[in-house]
């Protein structure tokens, strides 16, 4: 008999099914990360090079005065740690979002987008998944940093978690938005030069902003406009169980803007898939 006797499934999905989908996307992201060993190693080595070498050289040159959230003079290694955490998340967010549009990954993106779940949910799930992976990287980095002698409060691992989730979502959705908007960024080197380096250097990652202000008001102004600065400050404060309302507000607002932009851009009516369209047949 050929007649399909199946009943039509009910429209929509249950909450449990949404969670299954989210778990599946996260699981795959984690598996991919583990399988790509060189990505894991470079994600860990990159901030450690900064911590071991750059910070060692800089601590003699740069005196960091007492600024919140610090209550005493801190070593440069301690100052730079939140910036390096944010850098891990910046690289990861760009890498996982932009890798979606490279040819190698385009097929996987297509499979994701033909899922019957709402597209906004698929994209948010993808962002949550890449954020979870970035938090694993941060955890690994923090363990090494503490062993290296960076002093953090014992509960820092816990208090920093909400900040890491927010910051990861912000940077991931920025990457996703870029992946849909900028055609020229075909390879990762372009992203490094035009997005990652400017964002990283024009921020409070490597030096406190009051130092920047003394030497160049213009750069200071740029740093103040950079949402990455606020991601770093959110992480810096939460490592010490403190709370920076301005940083939180900026990060939440930036996340909302980037994420909305990415969802609009991946709407089938607009965005990258149409403009990339073509191909044979």
């Amino acid at each position: 008999m050929t007649g399909p006797a199946r009943a039509e499934p009910p429209a929509g999905f249950t909450l449990a099914q949404y969670l299954i989908c989210l778990r599946g996307i996260t699981w795959r992201e984690a598996l991919r990360f583990v399988h790509q060993r060189e990505r894991f190693v470079s994600a860990l080595v990159r901030p450690l090079v900064w911590l071991f070498i750059f910070a060692a050289g800089f601590r003699q040159i740069l005196g960091v005065s007492i600024i919140p959230p610090y209550e005493t003079y801190v070593l440069y290694e301690v100052y730079v740690t939140p910036g390096l955490i944010a850098m891990i998340q910046l690289f990861n967010g760009m890498q996982s979002s932009l890798s979606m549009v490279y040819d190698r990954e385009m097929g996987n993106m297509r499979m994701l987008l033909v899922s019957p779940f709402p597209r906004w949910f698929l994209l948010v799930a993808k962002l949550l998944a890449s954020t979870a992976v970035s938090i694993l990287q941060v955890a690994a980095f923090l363990v090494v940093a503490v062993l290296w002698g960076v002093e953090l409060p014992p509960w820092a691992f816990v208090t920093v978690l909400p900040a890491l989730i927010l910051c990861g979502l912000m940077l991931g959705s920025l990457g996703m938005l870029l992946s849909s908007m900028i055609k020229q960024l075909e390879n990762f080197a372009g992203v490094m030069n035009f997005v990652i380096f400017p964002m990283f250097f024009a921020s409070s990652a490597l030096y406190p902003l009051w130092l920047v202000q003394q030497s160049s008001p213009v750069v200071y102004f740029i740093c103040r406009l950079n949402p990455f600065t606020y991601g770093i400050e959110l992480i810096r404060f939460s490592l010490y169980g403190r709370f920076d309302p301005l940083a939180l507000a900026v990060v939440v607002a930036a996340t909302a803007v980037f994420m909305t932009g990415a969802i609009v851009a991946y709407d089938p009516a607009r965005g990258l898939l149409v403009r990339r369209g073509g191909g044979p047949g």
């Binding site: 999905f13 249950t14 449990a16 099914q17 949404y18 299954i20 989908c21 778990r23 599946g24 996307i25 699981w27 795959r28 598996l31 499979m111 994701l112 899922s115 019957p116 779940f117 698929l122």
Partner: peptide, 14 residues
């Protein structure tokens, strides 16, 4: 198998 299980998850099946 993981490829197929991932696809199942994308359809809410686990």
């Amino acid at each position: 198998r993981d490829n197929l299980l991932f696809h199942a998850a994308l359809h809410g099946i686990a």
